[in-house]
Amino acid sequence: MLVPRSLAGQRLDRAVALLLNVSRAEATGLVSDGRVKVDGVAVRVRHQPLREGQHLEVTLPSRPAALAPDPSVPYDVVLEDPDLLVIDKPPGVSVHPGAGRATGTLVHGLLARYPELAELPSAGAGDPSRPGIVHRIDRDTSGLLVVARTPAAYHALRQAIDEHRVERTYLALVHGQPEDRGLVDAPIGRSLRHPDRMAVQAGGRPSRSWFEVLARYDEPRSLALVRVTLETGRTHQIRVHMAAIGHPVVGDRRYGRAGDQRILGAARQWLHASELALAHPADSRPFWAKSPLPADLRAVLEACR
């Protein structure tokens, strides 16, 4: 399609959102994934302004097949009411289908117990492959996430997350000795050198992570247990931010250090979504949930001195 005069000077992500009638977040995802070309060249800078007459090409992801409920997927329900669910996800379970993961996700497990979630996308509440999912945590990260059960709850929760009114707190064991508390304020975008990774870089999306040291250890390595509170929620945000300040998460095979499994017994990234606080989308009453540390993370911590 050719960029019309009415969109001349508009940012790329806004123009894509308007032309395709999708949310700004969805448009940003298309840009970040390299699915948007301007005059035949893939552009990953979402704020690039457009000029009238430029040729804009967008490659949409293929529509997912119907999701089959899978009662074998493990998860715990912390809170359940007519509007939402708070789920405690174990490590090793992807939240939703994606590249290389078509079955066995949390979504498949939720549909086995809450089949009404399948109706949400048809009501304009979410992606067909992610019914009810308003945010996510990494496959090998354990802990809490909230799931919408109605269109109204979905839109209210999405807005609350976009406006930073959902407090998501994580526990992370990191290498080295960071300062007692601090803020990492650094934009995150798709790595230009490693497309399967995220990185701190100019032109990335604004990203802010607050951290506070809870405990320090000298053996078997210099380590610190930190509480991290997200102000934004970018892909791999805590892992990227802590690595960027020289304190990568223990056991992180993508952004961390070698030898963690051999020396510390960390078979996965030591990262747990421990607390979730928000106002209920139906009546604004505050609620808070907390998840205990899984056994594998406790074992690593108990070996530290």
Rank of each mutant, 00 (worst) to 15 (best):
D140V: 12
R168I: 04
A152Y: 01
V240C: 11
Q201L: 15
R197D: 01
R208C: 04
V184S: 03
V134F: 06
G203M: 01
M242E: 08
T141E: 10
R234A: 11
R181W: 07
M242F: 09
D138P: 11
A172G: 05
L171C: 10
Y114I: 03
V213Y: 11
A148Y: 02
L111S: 08
Q201F: 07
S142Q: 15
T169W: 14
Y154A: 05
L183S: 02
P206T: 03
V147L: 02
L145H: 00
G233E: 01
W210R: 15
Q237K: 08
E179M: 01
E163Q: 14
I137K: 07
L120I: 12
A243Y: 02
H164S: 07
H194W: 11
P187Y: 00
A148L: 07
L214V: 13
G204E: 05
D218W: 14
G104I: 12
R239P: 15
V134S: 07
V249E: 05
F211E: 10
T235Q: 04
L214I: 12
S129T: 00
L183T: 13
R149T: 03
E119H: 12
T229P: 13
V147N: 00
L144D: 14
G124L: 13
P195V: 07
R208K: 09
D185E: 12
G233C: 03
T232E: 07
E231Y: 13
E167C: 10
D185L: 10
L223W: 04
Q159W: 09
V200C: 11
L225S: 12
R227N: 13
A156G: 07
A199N: 06
L171N: 13
D127Q: 08
W210A: 15
G132D: 00
L110T: 00
R130Q: 10
V147F: 00
V249G: 07
A199L: 05
P131M: 15
Q201I: 13
A160N: 04
L192M: 02
R181P: 04
V213T: 15
R216N: 05
R181F: 12
D185I: 05
H241C: 08
L225H: 11
H108R: 08
Y217C: 00
M198S: 09
V213H: 12
V249H: 03
R208H: 04
A148N: 06
R227T: 13
G126Y: 06
L223M: 06
V213I: 08
